[in-house]
């Protein structure tokens, strides 16, 4: 019923168009994350990122009539849009680093690189999946762009918390790709999600540890500890 409603509003392929729009929104939020220069803002954008993902996955569940995808959406909304950002905020407050700005690469350069990555993922998908439907192909291209932007976020920042945010958005891109592909088993998504939670816990503990030792969570301090700083 809802699909026909959407179709009547947006045209004959409206259901898919909305999915497409949500994927595009995810990429847009990834770009937002790239130009944030405050840690608390980065975490808020991460929450937004996960919320958009939750909506996108829920919409996929609706149009594919795959109820188990709702579980993925709930996990995304519950865990990644609420619990993890709240926990990260708490860490930032406790470490008293909420005003820190630590971009290793300039914001403008990062944005330019991000645009190049989106173009690259569109070109790759155009060539490798030339025979498949246009919308499905571009959905995968957008997911790939989200993954690449997440990686870019990880290398463009020095601060470990922003690196976690980049890693989480990378993982959101993976889940978007998995939800778009029909027939991806739920087990895979659940295991990916759990691995993220474990990674979060480990990294959280790790952050407090390095803070205790080095009075900073700049990951270059670790290199100095190795005695290998160049």
């Amino acid at each position: 019923m809802m699909v026909t409603l959407v179709n009547s509003i947006f045209g004959p392929n409206g259901a898919l168009s909305l999915a497409h729009a949500l994927s595009g929104a995810l990429v847009l939020v990834s770009f937002m994350m790239l130009y944030q220069d405050r840690l608390s803002a980065v975490i808020n954008v991460l929450a937004l990122h996960s919320a958009v993902l939750g909506l996108a996955v829920a919409w996929q569940a609706w149009i594919q009539a795959e109820p188990q995808l709702y579980i993925t959406a709930v996990i995304a909304l519950g865990f990644k849009a609420m619990i993890i950002p709240l926990a990260l905020h708490r860490i930032v407050r406790r470490l008293n680093i909420h005003r820190e700005v630590e971009a290793a690469v300039g914001i403008g350069l990062t944005m330019l690189a991000g645009m190049g990555l989106v173009a690259l993922s569109l070109v790759v998908m155009l060539h490798t999946a030339a025979h498949s439907a246009v919308l499905a192909r571009e959905d995968v291209a957008l997911a790939l762009a989200t993954i690449l932007l997440g990686m870019l976020m990880m290398i463009a920042r020095r601060n470990a918390v922003s690196q976690i945010a980049g890693f989480m958005s990378l993982e959101n891109g993976l889940i978007l790709a998995a939800a778009g592909a029909e027939g991806m088993p739920l087990v895979v998504e659940i295991s990916v999600t759990f691995s993220i939670v474990i990674a979060f816990i480990v990294i959280g503990v790790f952050l407090f540890r390095i803070r205790e030792r080095f009075d900073t969570i700049d990951s270059t301090a670790l290199d100095a500890f190795r005695g290998e700083l160049q």
């Binding site: 290793a104 990686m151 290398i155 020095r158 670790l222 290199d223």
Partner: peptide
Amino acid sequence: LTIRRYLTIVF
């Protein structure tokens, strides 16, 4: 190398 360099190489 630093951790960020390794990530850059992967990327």
